[in-house]
Design a protein around this nucleic acid. Structure first.
Length: 868
RNA sequence: GCCCGUGUGGCGGAAUGGUAGACGCAGGGGAUUCAAAAUCCCCCGCCGCAAGGCGUGCCGGUUCGAGUCCGGCCACGGGUACCA
C-alpha cells in the first residue's frame, strides 16, 4: 500500500505555489489588505528550530488571511549587519560580507524547504548597498530636522586590543578576548533625539489595543515619566567654579530626611576633585572599571568615597550633608547627582549603614503610635532600629513625622509630595519638573560591518552631510582584520575625501550605525523594496501598517521602541504617512524553544558541551554515542544557544520527516507565547499523526456509500464544531488548541460509521483546516479527493451556527463546592425548573437530610452548587 | 539591583471565577501476526483493599465556589540602552 511520503509531496507543491505565484503580494482594490510580518532573522548561517516556530506561526496567519479573502503581504529579508560577521572575520579570515551572503544563501535554501507562503520577490538584506543607501538618505533628512546630532558619550574601551567593546564582550570588567581591565572612554558620538518624543511614545501606548499588556508596561517603565523636584544644593569646600549642585528627586516629601548627597564618578565635580586628589582619582578609576551597563553598575557592591565637600540644604543653608562619590549613581540619568534618604530607599539605607550615616524616618505607618513603638511590632520595624527601608505605594496613607508640614499629619505620599513641591516653589528652593528615564539613542558604532554614517568632517566647514546623489556611501571591500579596531579608520583611500561643501580635503565619518537602525524601518521598505526613495508613498499608503507583527519577547523594549520612534521620524521627514507612526497594529510575542543540555567536566573543572545528536540513552543513563562508557550530565532545559550546544538542527528533522511534521510539531503542545521544549519523541508522534490523516484520506473511497444516517449527522456536527474551534484558535493565536481540536476530530472521523459522502466532505474540510499548518499535506489530500485548483487559494470554510447548538447540557452538581453528582437537562431549561430537578435528586436529598438548603446557586448551562 | 513574565500528573500542556488534568508523549495491558513492524482497542494525578481523602511552586486572604482574583514569599526565564 502507498504511504505518506513527505519527501515527494513537499517539493511538488512548493513548485506548484511558485508557478501559480500564489503568495505574490498584489494590491487588489476589491479586497481588504493584510500585512503579516515576522521579525526578520539574523543570518547566522543555520536555520534554528526557533526560526521554524516563529515563521510557521506567521505562515499560519498569512495562509489563513489569504483564505479569508485578503490581499496578503508576507515578505522576508535579512538583518544582516552586526558583530558576529566581524568576529567570524577575525576568527576565520573571511570577509564579513562574504561570510554574511554565504550564510544568507544557506539559510534561504533551508527556509525554502519549510514551504512558507512568502513573497520572495521582495527580499533584501540590510547590508545591501541599495538598502543602507536609503537609510543614509533618511539619516541626512533627520540631521536637517535636528533629529540626529552629536554629543559625548562613554564606551567600553579595551586598552590591549585598542578597541571599543560591546557590553556582552565585557565579562567581569574585562575584555572577553584580551582579558584586560576595561576602561570607560568618552567619545563624540551620533544620537537620535528620541527624547523629543518621550511623551508621545508614552501616550500612544494607550492606543495600541492589540499589543500585549506586558510589552506596553515594559515600555512605560522604560520611558519612565516622573514628576519630581529640581533643586540645587549649595556647596562648601568645592573646587573653584562649582557654586551649586543641581539635583533631581522624585521624592520631594522626604526632603527633611536626607543624610548624604552623592555624585557619579563621571560628574564634572568629581572630575575636578579627581584632579586635586590622588585618592579621589583612584576611587573614580575603580568606579569606571565596572563598565557601562546598568546591570553591572547596579549589581556591583555599593561603594562611596567621602569627598570632604559639604552640600547645604536648599531649605536650610545651615544644614550640611556630606558629599560622596558613589559607584551606583548614573551620570546618564537626571543630573548625575542624588540626595540620599536612607529611611525610604533601600539602596540609600544600605549605603548609610555601610558608611555610618544617620537614618531619619520621614513617615511611619498610620497605625504606628508611641505606645506601639514602645512594645515594637512584627509588622513594622523602623529603619533606625534595623528594619528595611519603608517604601509604601504613593497612594498609601502614612503618618508624616519629619517633613515641612505639621508633624503627625496623616496623608498619602502623593499628597505630601504635592504639598512639598508647592512649598519649595513658593520659597524659591526648587521647582517641580517632569523628567523621563528615556535617553537619546546613541547610534555610533566604531565598527566596520554596519551602515556608514553619511557625513564628512571638514576643517573649514565642520560636519557636512554627504550629497544625496553620492549615496550610497559604500563600505570598502579591501579591508583586513589583522589589526584590532575599526578597519575604516585606517583605510586612507576610503576615509580621505573632498568636502561635499567646499571641495577641500576632508575625512569621512568612520563610525557606522547601530544595527537597530537597520531593523527600525525594514517593515516600511518591504512595501516598495525596489523604490528609488526609501519608500513609495502610494505603496506605503496601501500596505502600511503591519496588521500582525510576530517576534520574540526579548525585543519588547529596544527594537519595538526604536521602530516606533523611527516611524515618527520617517513621518516627520516625509517617508511615511501619518497613519504609519505606529507601524505595528497588532503584536504577538512568541516564546523560545528550549532544550536540555549535556555536558561533561574534565579533571581541571573545564566543561565540555555536547549536541543532543551526540548523546543517547542506554540502560537509563545518558551517554556519548561515540563512547558509551562516558556518562554525561543532563542539565535543565534552557534557551537554545550555540555556546551550550543544546540546539536541534531542523534540517535533519525536515529531511527525515518532512517540513509539515516540523511545522505541526512546533505548533502543537505549547501555547505560542510560551517557551517550548523540543523533544525527539514529539516529532515522531507528529509524523505518525500526519501519516494517519494521509491514510484516512486515501481510504475514504473504500467506505460504503450508505452509512448510518445518524452517524452522518454526528460527523457533520463535529465537523462544524471543529471549523468553529480551529478558526477561533487561529484568530486568537491558540495554535496548540487548534491542533488539539484537529487531533480530536481526526479520531472521531476515523471511528465514524458515516457514509462515503459525509466522510469525503469531512475529509476535504479537514484538509482546508489543516492547510495553514501543514500546507503540503493539505494540497495532497485536496487533490486526492478531487478538489479543483490549490487548497491554498480555497475560501476558508464557515461553521453553520445551527449545527453548533447543543440540545441538552450536562451540569455538575456541587454540595458545598465539591462535585458530588451531575444532571442532564434540555439546553433551554430555565433556572427555576433546574432548581426543582436538582433538589429532587438523591444526592441532594441525602445531603439535605430533610432540611432545606442554605443557598442554591444555579448557573444555567454551567454548574449547580448547593450549600447545606 | 531594577522592570516584565512564568510555575498544573512521569513529560509537553488544557480549563469565559464554575466537573482540574482536554489533546499529545512516555508507560502498562490486550487484539491482529508464524513472528515482527505498522495498525487498532483499553487503562493511566497521588494515597487507600475500599469508603474516602489529598492535590495546580509556598504561606495567607476574598468568594457559595479559586489553577484563575488580592497580599506576601520562593524558584526559573527575558530585558537592563554597544548581542540581535
Amino acid at each position: 500500500m502507498a504511504r505518506y511520503a513527505a519527501g515527494e509531496i513537499e517539493p511538488k507543491w512548493q513548485d506548484a505555489w511558485s508557478e501559480d505565484e500564489t503568495f505574490k503580494a498584489v494590491r487588489d482594490p476589491g479586497k481588504p489588505k493584510y500585512y503579516v510580518l515576522e521579525m526578520f532573522p539574523y543570518p547566522s548561517g543555520d536555520l534554528h528550530i526557533g526560526h521554524v516556530r516563529n515563521y510557521t506561526m506567521g505562515d499560519v496567519v498569512a495562509r489563513y488571511k489569504l483564505a479569508t479573502g485578503h490581499a496578503v503581504l508576507h515578505p522576508m529579508g535579512w538583518d544582516a549587519f552586526g558583530l558576529p560577521a566581524e568576529n567570524a572575520a577575525q576568527e576565520r579570515k573571511v570577509h564579513p560580507g562574504d561570510w554574511t551572503y554565504g550564510n544568507i544563501a544557506n539559510m534561504k535554501a533551508q527556509f525554502s524547504k519549510l514551504g512558507l507562503s512568502l513573497d520572495w520577490s521582495r527580499e533584501f538584506a540590510t547590508c545591501d548597498p541599495d538598502y543602507y543607501g536609503k537609510q543614509q538618505a533618511m539619516f541626512i533628512d533627520m540631521m536637517e530636522k535636528g533629529l540626529a546630532y552629536r554629543k559625548n558619550a562613554v564606551v567600553n574601551w579595551d586598552p590591549v586590543d585598542m578597541t571599543v567593546l560591546a557590553n556582552e564582550q565585557v565579562e567581569d570588567g574585562r575584555g572577553w578576548r584580551s582579558g584586560a581591565l576595561v576602561e570607560r572612554r568618552e567619545l563624540t558620538q551620533w544620537f537620535f533625539r528620541i527624547s523629543q518624543y518621550s511623551d508621545e511614545l508614552l501616550a500612544a501606548l494607550d492606543r495600541l489595543d492589540n499589543w500585549p499588556d506586558k510589552v506596553k508596561t515594559m515600555q512605560r517603565n522604560w520611558i519612565g515619566k516622573s514628576q519630581g523636584l529640581a533643586f540645587s544644593f549649595g556647596l562648601k569646600g568645592a573646587p573653584e567654579g562649582f557654586d551649586d549642585l543641581p539635583v533631581y528627586t522624585t521624592r520631594a516629601d522626604t526632603m527633611r530626611g536626607p543624610s548624604f548627597a552623592a555624585i557619579a564618578a563621571d560628574h564634572p565635580l568629581a572630575r575636578a576633585l579627581e584632579a586635586q586628589s590622588p585618592e579621589v582619582a583612584a576611587f573614580c578609576a575603580q568606579c569606571r572599571r565596572i563598565g557601562t551597563s546598568e546591570e553591572a553598575l547596579e549589581t556591583a557592591e555599593k561603594l562611596g568615597f567621602d569627598t570632604g565637600v559639604k552640600v547645604t540644604h536648599p531649605a536650610d543653608p545651615d544644614w550640611e550633608l556630606p558629599l560622596y562619590i558613589a559607584n551606583f549613581v548614573l551620570m546618564d540619568y537626571g543630573t548625575g547627582a542624588i540626595i540620599g534618604c536612607p529611611a525610604h530607599d533601600q539602596r540609600d539605607l544600605d549605603f548609610a549603614r555601610k558608611y555610618d550615616l544617620p537614618v531619619h524616618s520621614v513617615f511611619v505607618p498610620a497605625w504606628w503610635t508611641d505606645e506601639v513603638a514602645d512594645h515594637g511590632s512584627p509588622d513594622y520595624v523602623p529603619p533606625e532600629r534595623g528594619g528595611p527601608a519603608f517604601v509604601p505605594a504613593k497612594t498609601e496613607t502614612v503618618k508624616y513625622i519629619r517633613w515641612f508640614g505639621e508633624a503627625g499629619t496623616e496623608i498619602t505620599c502623593q499628597e505630601a509630595m504635592d504639598q512639598t513641591l508647592a512649598l519649595f516653589d513658593e520659597n524659591g528652593w526648587g521647582t517641580a519638573r517632569t523628567q523621563f528615564r528615556l535617553r537619546d539613542w546613541g547610534l555610533s558604532r566604531q565598527r566596520y560591518w554596519g551602515c556608514p554614517i553619511p557625513v564628512v568632517h571638514c576643517d573649514a566647514c565642520g560636519v557636512v552631510p554627504e550629497k544625496k546623489e553620492n549615496l550610497p556611501v559604500e563600505l570598502p571591500k579591501d579591508i583586513d582584520f589583522d589589526k584590532p579596531g575599526n578597519p575604516l579608520d585606517r583605510h586612507p583611500t576610503w576615509r580621505d575625501v573632498a568636502c561635499p561643501s567646499c571641495g577641500g580635503p576632508a575625512k569621512r565619518e568612520t563610525d557606522t550605525m547601530d544595527t537597530f537602525v537597520d531593523s527600525s524601518w525594514y517593515y516600511a521598505r518591504f512595501t516598495s523594496p525596489r523604490a528609488e526613495t526609501p519608500t513609495d508613498a502610494e505603496e506605503a499608503a496601501y500596505w502600511m501598517n503591519v496588521d500582525q507583527y510576530i517576534g520574540g519577547i526579548e525585543h519588547a523594549i529596544l527594537h519595538l521602541l526604536y521602530s516606533r520612534f523611527f516611524a515618527r521620524a520617517m513621518n516627520a521627514t516625509g517617508h511615511l504617512p501619518e497613519k504609519g507612526v505606529e507601524p505595528f497594529d497588532a503584536l504577538f510575542t512568541q516564546g523560545m524553544v528550549t532544550h536540555e543540555t549535556y555536558s561533561t567536566r574534565d579533571a581541571t573543572g573545564r566543561t565540555t558541551w555536547y549536541f543532543p545528536s551526540d548523546v543517547e540513552e542506554r540502560d537509563g543513563r545518558t551517554v556519548l554515542k561515540s563512547d558509551p562508557a562516558v556518562e554525561v550530565t543532563v542539565g535543565p532545559s534552557i534557551k537554545m544557544s550555540k555556546s551550550k550546544r543544546n540546539v536541534v538542527d531542523p534540517v535533519a528533522i525536515i529531511d527525515h520527516y518532512g517540513a509539515d511534521t516540523a511545522r505541526w510539531f512546533v505548533l502543537s503542545d505549547s501555547p505560542p507565547e510560551r517557551d517550548v521544549e523540543w523533544t525527539a519523541s514529539g516529532a515522531e508522534a507528529a509524523h505518525r499523526h500526519l501519516s494517519r490523516v494521509w491514510r484516512l484520506a486515501s481510504e475514504v473511497d473504500e467506505t460504503a456509500v450508505e452509512g448510518d444516517p445518524e452517524a452522518d449527522q454526528d460527523l457533520l456536527r463535529a465537523l462544524h464544531r471543529t471549523i468553529h474551534d480551529v478558526t477561533m484558535g487561529i484568530e486568537s493565536f491558540g495554535f496548540n488548541s487548534a491542533v488539539a481540536r484537529l487531533y480530536a476530530f481526526t479520531n472521531q472521523l476515523s471511528k465514524s460509521e458515516a457514509g462515503r459522502g459525509a466522510k469525503r466532505e469531512a475529509m476535504q474540510t479537514l484538509a482546508q483546516l489543516m492547510a495553514p499548518m501543514t500546507p503540503h499535506l493539505a494540497e495532497e489530500i485536496w487533490q486526492m479527493l478531487g478538489g479543483k485548483g490549490l487548497v491554498a487559494r480555497e475560501e476558508w470554510p464557515e461553521a453553520d451556527p445551527a449545527l453548533l447548538v447543543e440540545d441538552s447540557v450536562t451540569m455538575p452538581i456541587q454540595i458545598n463546592g465539591k462535585r458530588r453528582s451531575e444532571i442532564t437537562v434540555p439546553a433551554d431549561m430555565g433556572r427555576a425548573e433546574i432548581e426543582k430537578l436538582v433538589l429532587d435528586t438523591d444526592t441532594v436529598q441525602k445531603a439535605l437530610n430533610g432540611g432545606s438548603p442554605k443557598k442554591l446557586i444555579v448557573v444555567p448551562g454551567r454548574i449547580v452548587n448547593v450549600v447545606v
